[in-house]
Design a binder for these strands. Structure first.
Length: 841
RNA sequence: GCGAGAGUGGUGGAAUGGCAGACACGCCAGACUUAGGAUCUGGUGCCCCCGGGCGUGAGGGUUCAAGUCCCUUCUCUCGCACCA
């Protein structure tokens, strides 16, 4: 292939129609050629070679995409490019690398599109997958495509269903008919994690409350391990913190209060058992079962009205912090176990039925929310904690407080406990309560069980049947996969029933246990189900007997590096960890955590610094970029924009700069000729080469791609100054560039005559550097007087401090600043600087 | 409100406590050119009496030396938000 030089005819393949831009190098031919060759030769196929020691294996994973109808946007390739560069770098360093790609293919967008257009979601999903795959391939990523998976394929979701059965067997999947978050637009229930600011995370519609039968996964049973095992993984602290906050562990005590004149008792959870003497009222959530039992006749009507009103409110209305507290007195009184005091029991929607016991002891003096409530209803406020060292703390008693004090301090007005510090009091009172059997140490979590069923069509059917005589019966494993049936209408019913409920021939079945007539479960699984374990299927994607063989699990797991967007910090990453731990307990996987290291790539914003969106009209289409500038330019630009982890705006002008760099490299390759082989490399450039190898090696290994590219640009610029680049300076550079611009590098490598038609540089040895050559023989020494730079001179590297000091002090320019002053101190930093501290006379 | 992160030229961004602004875009000047989002060379933080002075959101502090460490404060982004 002889590239055109100078003028290019419009008919040339390098001419891009609709653009006045003309490439100097034929990236389109080059990229096509190498992509075809990699595919033909299966260059990036991963094999479990037992000869490769464990420390030379890496599993590098991208968060797989949901193939939407819109195709890829420029944000997708950012993470994919990062992992691809890293994988190519690892292979050149002798690692055996597993780097797969697949598709998260069940989900609502395809189903909604199907309803609108009448095309089956399976058809649109497969079309989208085709499109995504082609787009991803156009960027030249080194995936092992033989391991591609799609979560909507029955040989994949067979194992999603299998894992569900395991969860069910272990009592981790159960039915419930609690009120749930319901999205009226998506017409399905949502998990807590899918609700953001009271709205559906997907479509933004305000969620309502609905009571329907649901499948729920007992993720709370793993709360403690999900929390503590965060210490095992190398993840961004921000993500760990988000998960810790989401799990929300809090330690305290549960305390039982008796009800006056009755046998009922009321259990509450508190993190401040040291404030028990300050309880002036109690509050039950409106849904609390005790409400009906203890409400007095006189209060019955008011209470009933409040309960009905609360039930009709959305969570958002109930949890709006700005609104005033509301509530109703039940007429009942509880007895404070620590002092026998009689305290009124109220109901209010500021107490949540789903946390703790759904009931609280109210200590208005030391809790903002109780304070607000007490102020609204004129309830007494009794201070029982005083600031350490305050006069109240000393005398152990005090008057009415005029503000709420929520910090720790010293107990007052607390009987024998007065004078104790908060921490000591907590220990003492828990012991006191435990001795009397009316309370104990307790731990509570914000984390709720995971609402797992969706009232929609395009998802994995839940593999259980409902039998009138046997109850809920799981399908035997041999009946998996339970296929998603073809339907004529997959429109959601909106009633809380899945469209599957309308297919009698599918719903009506026989009970696997008793053989009698039974009905299939008609809810489907949420989109998260398939993505919970896909990283395991890549290990052994065609295995019909297990989700993955023991050998493949043992060979590759855990994932060494996982790259994806921060939006999954809680959702996918928490769910996935949960399933993995269940599989670990089953002995099905060998590691407690799936993803050892996690990196979140930053978002690529539009050139207006706003989130890319169709409505803003600032979306950049990667296809156009690849067509006009080539995949290599796209890859290198996305990595050159800035650090991987931060958000940064797209600027096509910046892309042009990168494109020019690659063109310069191509032109350098053109200049490389016969005489290059023997040309002696200039010493300075040889040093620069070794410095560049060192910099690019270090920066690639640590994913600091932007500075690695900068180093390569500097080197290419210097190399460009030479008449003919010597081979010894050129070859290693081509290898350094290879992970970043693989198509261009392969072509240049081939032109170097390095191999036959089947060859590739994908497994060539990464260049090494000579540390001695990276060091400068001469150093520029900066001379400061009182911290300001006044002069500089060159000294041999390693010159001793006293010598540097003497040289600096003798410099005429320095003397101008030190004359007529007393040199108080001289600081010398070897190879760097001399700072002369003077005091004026 | 609570928690986390970030503020550096006209722009994206570089800087183990030791030359602030690498690299790139843009801009200016020149060269080459029928032409150009082409190429090459040089310049480009601000002010200036051309000696120098000032500069990393603002204000303080530690240090011989601070973009970097500490305190205060402002702004922006993200997460959580009556979880007792």
């Amino acid at each position: 292939m002889s590239p055109p030089r100078g003028g290019i005819e419009p008919s040339s393949a390098s001419y891009v129609r609709g653009s006045i831009f003309m490439a100097k190098y034929p990236f389109r031919e080059i990229e096509k050629k190498w992509q075809e060759r990699w595919e033909r030769d299966k260059t990036f196929k991963s094999v479990e070679d037992p000869a490769v020691p464990r420390e030379k294996r890496r599993y590098v994973l991208d968060m797989f995409p949901y193939p939407s109808g819109d195709g890829l946007h420029v944000g997708h390739p950012e993470g994919y490019t990062a992992t691809d560069i890293y994988c190519r770098y690892l292979r050149m360093n002798g690692y055996n690398v597993l780097h797969p790609m697949g598709f998260d293919a069940f989900g609502l967008p395809a189903e909604n599109h199907a309803i609108k257009t009448g095309t089956h979601p399976s058809v649109t999903t497969h079309a989208s997958i085709e499109r995504f795959r082609a787009q991803i391939k156009s960027l030249g990523f080194s995936y092992d495509w033989d391991r591609e998976i799609a979560t909507c394929e029955s040989d994949y979701y067979k194992w999603t269903q299998w894992i569900f059965l395991k969860l069910f067997e272990r009592g981790l999947a159960y039915e419930s008919d609690m009120p749930i978050n319901w999205c009226p637009s998506c017409k399905t229930g949502l998990a807590n994690e899918e609700v953001k600011d009271g709205a559906c995370d997907r479509c933004g519609t305000k969620v309502t409350r609905k009571r329907i039968r649901q499948w729920v996964l007992k993720i709370t049973a793993y709360a403690d391990r999900l929390l503590s095992d965060l210490d095992l993984v190398e993840w961004p602290e921000a993500v760990k913190l988000m998960q810790r906050n989401w799990i929300g562990r809090s330690e305290g005590a549960s305390v039982v209060f008796g009800i006056e004149g009755g046998t009922e008792t009321m259990e509450i959870f508190t993190t401040r058992p040291d404030t028990l003497f300050g309880v002036t009222y109690m509050v039950l959530a409106p849904e609390h079962p005790l409400v009906h039992d203890i409400t007095t006749k006189a209060q019955h009507e008011a209470v009933e009205a409040y309960v009905v009103a609360a039930a009709g409110k959305s969570d958002l209305e109930r949890t709006d912090l700005a609104k005033d507290k509301t509530g109703v007195f039940t007429g009942a009184y509880a007895i404070n176990p620590v002092n026998g005091r009689r305290i009124p029991v109220w109901i209010s929607d500021y107490v949540l039925i789903s946390y703790g016991t759904g009931a609280i002891m109210a200590v208005p003096a030391h809790d903002e929310r109780d304070w607000d409530f007490a102020k609204v209803f004129g309830l007494p406020i009794l201070q029982v904690v005083a600031k350490e060292g305050s006069p109240e703390a000393k005398i152990g008693t005090c008057g009415d407080p005029d503000e709420c004090f929520t910090e720790e301090g010293v107990a007052v007005n607390s009987g024998d406990f007065s004078g104790l510090g908060t921490a000591d009091f907590k220990q003492a009172i828990v012991a006191w309560l435990e001795k009397r059997g009316i309370g104990k140490r307790a731990v509570n979590y914000k984390l709720r069980d995971w609402l797992f069923s969706r009232q929609r069509y395009w998802g994995e059917p839940i593999p259980v049947v409902h039998c009138p005589s046997c109850g809920i019966v799981p399908l035997p494993e041999s009946e998996l996969p339970l296929l998603l049936p073809e339907v004529k209408s997959y429109a959601p019913t909106g009633t809380g029933e899945s469209p599957l409920a309308n297919i009698p021939e599918w719903v009506n079945t026989t009970c696997p246990k008793c053989g009698g007539p039974a009905k299939r479960e008609t809810n489907t699984m949420p989109q998260w189900a398939g993505s919970c374990w896909y990283y395991l299927r890549y290990l052994d994607p065609r295995n019909g007997a297990a989700f993955a063989s023991k050998e493949s699990l043992e060979y590759w797991m855990p994932v060494s590096l996982y790259v994806g967007g921060a939006e999954h910090a809680v959702l996918h990453l928490l769910y996935s960890r949960f399933w993995h731990k269940v599989l670990f307990d089953l002995g099905a996987v060998g590691t407690p955590e799936p993803f050892m290291r996690l990196v979140n790539q930053g978002m690529i914003l539009g050139d207006d610094n706003q989130k890319m969106s169709k409505s803003r009209g600032n979306v950049v289409n990667p296809d156009e970029i690849v067509r006009e500038f080539g995949a290599d330019s796209m890859r290198v630009y996305e990595m050159f924009m800035g650090p991987l982890e931060v958000s940064k705006p797209w600027a096509t002008s910046g892309l042009v700069g990168v494109s020019r760099f690659l063109e310069k490299v191509w032109a350098l390759g053109e200049r490389f000729g016969e005489d290059s082989a023997s040309a002696a490399p200039p010493a300075e450039l040889r040093k620069l080469l070794h410095k560049t190898i060192k910099k690019v090696t270090g920066d690639t290994a640590t994913l600091n791609f932007n500075t690695a590219i900068s180093a390569m640009m500097i080197y290419a610029n210097e190399l460009g100054r030479l008449e003919t680049p010597p081979r010894a300076l050129w070859e290693p550079f081509v290898l350094l560039l290879a992970p970043y611009a693989p198509h261009l590098a392969e072509e240049l490598w081939e032109r170097l005559g390095s191999g036959g038609p089947a060859s590739t540089l994908a497994r060539e040895t990464w260049p090494s550097f000579d540390e001695a050559l990276c060091a400068d023989e001469e150093k520029e020494i900066v001379v400061q007087v009182n911290g300001k730079i006044r002069d500089r001179f060159v000294a041999p590297a390693g010159t001793a401090e006293p010598e540097l000091q003497a040289t600096a002090l003798a410099r005429p320019k320095v003397k101008e600043w030190t004359d007529g002053a007393v040199v108080a101190k001289v600081i010398v930093v070897k190879d760097k600087l001399v700072n002369i501290v003077v005091t004026k006379i």
